[in-house]
Design a binder for these strands. Structure first.
Lengths: 182, 182
DNA sequence: CCTAGACGTGTCACATTCGACATGTCAACA
DNA sequence: TGTTGACATGTCGAATGTGACACGTCTAGG
């Protein structure tokens, strides 16, 4: 269960963040690699506080609670980072559909691939635009890792787009091959 | 919820498959894009049968049940494939850790990246070996899509490995830059 | 005959996740 | 003064997923 560790890491980096702040980070910055809903987040903050891995370091207006990581939390974060191995948890709906593309007509299958190629190209454009806007040299915050993640995002989208272009070509070749041959 | 549709698609392609057979497919062939545990799978087969999307087409030795897709199931599968859009559900523990690599010492951070590079290289070797062994020209089954998935797996692993190599270099440059500069 | 191992189905308790709902505060502006 | 919208925290039920357990059958080989 990594939401716990995502929160722990975030609180360690962003000192004095509230649940609301953290939610924004999940939406914007961390969202590429890990997602969390609001109810999940507040629930987990409660559990982490109960377990003593984080603590409420200050309270602000509107019931705002600012969190800080405790020594126990730091130890747990470190343990997770250096002593446990990540297990890839593969679950990809886009690729799952590709698996069953035989089940629908060729027009629709090609349509699906075209839509995916368009969507991925769009995402790549967005990323390129975003990269120009973001103030990379700014102090504090996650921009160091943000840059790495941004590059990963770009490579990932490009790889997928290129694969779809290739798969589409394969599909058409198989199709025309079966048509003229046999 | 895509497990339902993964099963539906599989039963449509592999006629007369049992739960046990399907489990093998998840372990070997489909595992790259979608995972399922045994308890999940049998549970879902029961639900699909109750809903009338699949039916038990034959019973074999050892209580074996063979499943077939019904017209309603075919319609549902088709609906899912052509009329709904996949929502990417990003959750990647390996990349999540990268986000928090600042939290540990440089030796350990570089160690993590090296381990990832090794692991990915290993996976790529495995895939190359597997590709030579698999009888691609065989009739029936998933080899058509298997080939697409195989290529995707190769590109995905290679992309990640290359990214880690790049990120490692970035990390070292930032480190020595901060050390000699400033 | 016995037994190991593949084949085969199923349940149960627990944890995690999701989406919707409920509640309230503070600042800005008409 | 009223109201809009960002800030802010929380609960609840239902769906999903995980790992362990429980049970029974058929085949090959010692």
């Amino acid at each position: 269960m990594s939401l716990r560790h995502a929160l722990l890491g975030l609180i360690a980096e962003l000192d004095g963040a509230s649940g609301y702040d953290l939610l924004k980070v999940f939406e914007i910055s961390l969202g590429t690699v890990w997602q969390a809903t609001q109810s999940q987040l507040y629930g987990e903050l409660g559990k982490l506080t109960d377990t003593g891995l984080i603590e409420v370091s200050a309270e602000g207006p509107r019931g705002r609670k600012e969190y800080a990581i405790t020594d126990a939390g730091q130890a747990e974060l470190r343990h997770w980072l250096v002593e446990t191995e990540p297990k890839p948890h593969r679950r990809d709906e886009v690729m799952l559909r590709v698996f069953f593309l035989d089940q629908i007509g060729p027009e629709e299958a090609l349509g699906y691939m075209d839509r995916m190629i368009d969507a991925l190209s769009g995402r790549l454009d967005e990323l390129a635009r975003l990269e120009e806007i973001v103030p990379w040299e700014e102090e504090g915050g996650l921009t160091g890792n943000g840059r790495l993640t941004m590059e990963y995002g770009k490579r990932f989208m490009a790889m997928r787009r290129d694969w779809f272009v290739w798969a589409r070509k394969q599909y058409e070749e198989r199709r025309s091959g079966a048509g003229t041959g046999g």
